[in-house]
Design a protein around this nucleic acid. Structure first.
Lengths: 249, 249
DNA sequence: CGATAATTTGAGACGTTTCAAAGCGGGTGG
DNA sequence: CCACCCGCTTTGAAACGTCTCAAATTATCG
């Protein structure tokens, strides 16, 4: 995290709130702490390796993060994707090593807050603790949905579900207009997310496209044309899903 | 959860500590609260349905729980398995509905503590909060390992990993002797856990058996004969894995 | 505009599922 | 106590979905 680290947020790059979405109503103190730990990272920067020690909480302000793991042969599975306004604290049972890799999928600005500082913040601000536990609950719910489809779903249902999940999460932060949104992922990357080869992602996307349910252009600009049909393919009830994976404030 | 609920813990059924493993050093007050909410459930009892409201924390004292989700066609995926000494609080982003089903895989005794009571306990006992967050971290780590194999692993690596994970977790509570342990799952159930059909679980188990790595008898009495070979098939480093998924106290 | 990466499509290989039937085992009722 | 039954395991054979390999096409970036 040295050479690719950028010191300051580029001028002009501003998200909807100065400190990220879930912190829009945050205390002055919290805002100040977040601002003091803000960093910018280029796409493809690896912030944390599998097995590495971890002692900081990542509060994403802008950009996408991928949480992933890899097999010995190099095959990568994206365990989760972290969007602006979300928090991730990568540690495991022993309390200090990360069992996952964390990397930037796009240019990203993140408050990297040392865990000691963070827990003091939480002690003084019960709201913040509630925000974090809710964020974790949302993450667990969407991971469960994806696990279900990894284990029992078809290629179509995996992709359909991923599109719905991302569309909903992006919608909550104003980054999805009428079912249109941008994915900073190649088809290979999307395959790593849904457990398919890049080639099969392509075929599946085209099939959904031909049936008029979604369309894609230029490096993953997605438009969902028929949410009901897509939800049907995915096997979800959109409104129930929204309650389970979207944090409202 | 009415007809199959059993009112009292059967006499003579005692785990290694009166209140479950992680609570062996718990305060008198905590022990009393847990005891007051203890219930027994027969195998196959469904404690919570997908989408149902949930307002209690489950502290497992004895027996196994499955956390699962199902597709419209009835196919079930076991998202996680909860063992004695572990805690689960099934809620999602909206704070009150469970996105998963919770069921007993064997006769189980559980303290079902209302969330209001639980959070008061946590406020008065920082140790307890730490125990819960660590439990969640461990759960996330093992879910990540399984997701990786669901997405990118072979049938052999999925089963091998599951055996290692369960062996380690059972070892931590003294329920695995020299690599020998009992799984309260049929091959169908194991298939639901690792994302394979029952038939292919059978074939894979026999292949591992024939190569002398593990053996199985009578409804899932498993013995791991060669942990290194099994870890190799699973693609894990046992000691690193232990640190990531086993909570030590 | 050339070089390089990403997408698209085809064809065949591979691993897993499904369907089917036979064996085993434990529990129940006659 | 035996016979029967039901659920679980085992095995085979064929179908299916996804992956791999390969080549053509299209975008992207310097």
């Amino acid at each position: 995290m040295s050479s690719s680290e950028v010191e300051t947020t580029p001028p002009g790059m501003v998200s909807r709130s100065e400190c990220g979405v879930p912190f829009s109503d945050a205390s002055v103190h919290l805002r100040r702490v977040l601002k003091a730990h803000m960093h910018g990272y280029r796409a493809e920067t690896i912030l944390k390796f599998e097995g590495e020690d971890s002692a900081a909480v990542y509060c994403v302000q802008t950009g996408w993060l991928a949480v992933s793991k890899s097999m010995a042969n190099g095959a990568r599975q994206i365990i989760d994707v972290i969007l602006p306004g979300e928090i991730i604290d990568p540690y495991s049972a022993n309390g200090h090593t990360s069992s996952v890799q964390i990397e930037a999928l796009s240019y990203t600005t993140i408050a990297v807050v040392p865990r000691a500082v963070w827990s003091r913040l939480e002690d003084s601000d019960p709201e913040l603790r509630h925000t974090e536990t809710t964020t974790i609950a949302a993450s667990l719910s969407r991971m469960s949905e994806r696990m279900l489809r990894l284990g029992k779903g078809t290629a179509e249902s995996r992709i359909a579900y991923a599109m719905i999940e991302l569309c909903m999460r992006l919608g909550a932060i104003g980054e999805c207009n009428n079912g249109a949104f941008h994915l900073p992922l190649t088809q290979q990357g999307l395959g790593d997310f849904v457990g398919l080869s890049a080639v099969h992602v392509c075929r599946t996307l085209r099939r959904l496209s031909r049936s008029g349910i979604i369309s894609t252009e230029d490096h993953m600009d997605v438009v969902i044309h028929d949410l009901d049909a897509l939800a049907d393919v995915a096997g979800v009830d959109p409104e129930r899903l929204r309650g389970e994976i979207i944090v409202t404030r």
